[in-house]
Design a protein around this nucleic acid. Structure first.
Lengths: 209, 209, 209, 209
DNA sequence: TATTAATCGAGACGGTACGTCGCGTCTTTTC
DNA sequence: GAAAAGACGCGACGTACCGTCTCGATTAATA
């Protein structure tokens, strides 16, 4: 009987007897965390006590579900549903613009970005958090980018020797840096368009070409 | 006798009388902070007590100089001297590669990047920290980029309608995102070269070449 | 969730739920405080940290029970059990001597008197401390004196117009002043006897008697 | 050249050369201390910084004169001029009442008593302070009492076997205890009269009178 | 239906860091 | 020299969270 059986009461739990975890508490906690972060509460400000209070739940009820603050915030992060944009049938440029601009939209009210900013610091010494961060946030976006770029290569629109990984960094880096590191708002899709156009066409002047 | 006249003893201070702040203490404290951060101590782990102890100084002596941990770390950050690379006479591509790759070098041992990562979270709710961050770290790099890009435009190598701000995001974003947000090492200049080449040439296939 | 509900877990507390305060901690803390004071540690020397350490308890555990040092010391003071002397059947003079001399005995090892001396200074600006001091230390002694003196009046041994309050001051004042203010030891019951005899007989020479 | 040459620059100082200590500072400091204590500032509240500030003097100037807070407060205490009441020609009872009541008057505005209360605590562990307290406050009063009582014995008014020391405790103790320990105001001379009358006549009922 | 076991609320507990304050000493400049 | 100003080392203060641990009261599946 380990001291913490986090998520032990998840579906498929073999135990017999005992009260079930209240699924409403799960939701209330995550929502409370998100709400607080959205209200300008930094990662460090966000205390477990505050979250529990806001969720109308005892502190232990939070700890029963998530080992610590990072895990909680990460879960809150993961609980945001991330709408995948419709790319079917769009031309390559528009696909890429949609994907890049989606990064901006995912942080409604800049909540997500603040949240990510908070995690960045903690992540410094917790490699597994970085991994989870990658899985949760980066991975699926990555796949969408990979697909769009591969199609571009196959269709001949993009160079055959394109380094896809590198290309993804090129496309996502500017937006991420702007939103999370420099914490500046991006108000329109113009930023994404500009990034994609530079990415596709480069910046050399090509008069005679 | 204000309770906190931080940095009051800075150069040019008009006061007469009173013991001067020991400049050795300033250095010792900043170095201690940097050393600890460099040794894998995260922003949250870094306690004022630890810094003071390492610096061989009383805790109050730290607080006399910096109001709190964030201010201290920011100062430590600013105290890193940032070598400006020699760009004179280099072709545009090499200039840009040097500038982009310098971002990587500035965080020797990833110290600076860890440090920045730690600040990112705190900065979320302290706008003035973001500003200071911009001034301290971003501004002078920005100027170097601006100059190189402007020269490129003037020489006709870059498009006349280039949006310089946007271009800087394109060049620095990928590296920053990789080093700070995703906390992945970048071992060679190849990354910077790749970024610059994509930036200059774009990624479209160009059959006529 | 009030920040400080000191003594909330006292007997008769209606709350349900929540871990009970460890009564062993209460005792350990009070004993630690008394021990330290008894070992020659002055009121100012007595640090909360030291008390907690000696009691084998976290500092917060002390603060959870008593708001600050004064409250703690006062509680420690109150925790001394004060043996009430057997007065039944004694002649008036002996009753009074026993009561006056008890003041001396209550501060075994002068612990109590040192303690009181320490409180006197703090009490200067905290009226409620003076009140608590009265309740804790003075009140029950007062009642014993009142009873003895009233009996003396009723039996005709003492003047009918005796001002009882004043009389108590007369009896206790000299001993208190000597022990606490002047901090001089009183080694035998002779002092008490002398006080009582003067109190009863006065000091006028009475040749004709 | 000892680190502290307290009071070295007092009148009669043999040194040659160097600036003289400003006697106005002496006064200003003592007055500041007394004023603060009089305004309800307890001994613990009274910080050297506050005193210096109020006196319009640097903190070091205070320390140059008195080694620490206790010494300063004690000096402030001593600086109060203590009017000796005119006893010449009064009957014994009136002499004693005047002396006892003088204890009350000496603490104008209860300043002195608060001050003494503050010292009591510190004195617990500083024997020399108690001594100085005795010298400063107790001694000269003691002599006045001794004289009055001796005269009473010689004149036959008081018992020949009177223990003078004990008698002084009897007379002063109640007032001191009331003013300093219990911190209760005494508004009229009635208290002193009552003390003296009990002292002289005792409290036994005396049917033949 | 009774038993049993896990959850829930509340909140105490040992830690650790925070930022402030006061002490008594020291250094520096001016008078 | 003394005086004003103020830095310095030290150490206590009281607060705030952290993550763990009891409690008694609920609540569900099992026996």
């Amino acid at each position: 009987m380990p001291p913490h059986v986090h998520r032990a009461a998840a579906p498929g739990h073999p135990s017999r007897g005992g009260r079930r975890r209240d699924p409403a508490a799960d939701r209330a906690i995550l929502e409370a965390a998100l709400a607080l972060l959205g209200e300008g509460c930094s990662f460090a400000d966000l205390s477990m006590d505050l979250v529990a209070q806001r969720a109308g739940v005892a502190r232990a009820t939070v700890y029963r579900r998530w080992r610590n603050k990072e895990e909680l915030v990460l879960a809150a992060l993961g609980s945001l549903d991330l709408p995948v944009p419709h790319l079917e049938g769009l031309p390559l440029r528009d696909k890429l613009v949609a994907l890049v601009d989606q990064i901006r939209h995912r942080g409604q009210d800049t909540l997500l970005h603040r949240l990510l900013a908070g995690l960045v610091g903690e992540a410094a010494r917790r490699p597994h958090l970085v991994e989870r961060f990658e899985e949760t946030v980066v991975a699926q976006r990555r796949r969408a980018f990979e697909q769009a770029l591969s199609e571009g290569v196959e269709s001949g629109e993009l160079r055959a020797d394109l380094d896809v990984d590198q290309a993804i960094e090129m496309l996502t880096g500017p937006m991420l840096s702007r939103l999370i590191l420099r914490q500046r708002p991006v108000d329109s899709a113009a930023f994404a368009e500009s990034v994609v156009d530079m990415f596709l066409n480069g910046t050399r002047s090509r008069p005679g070409r």
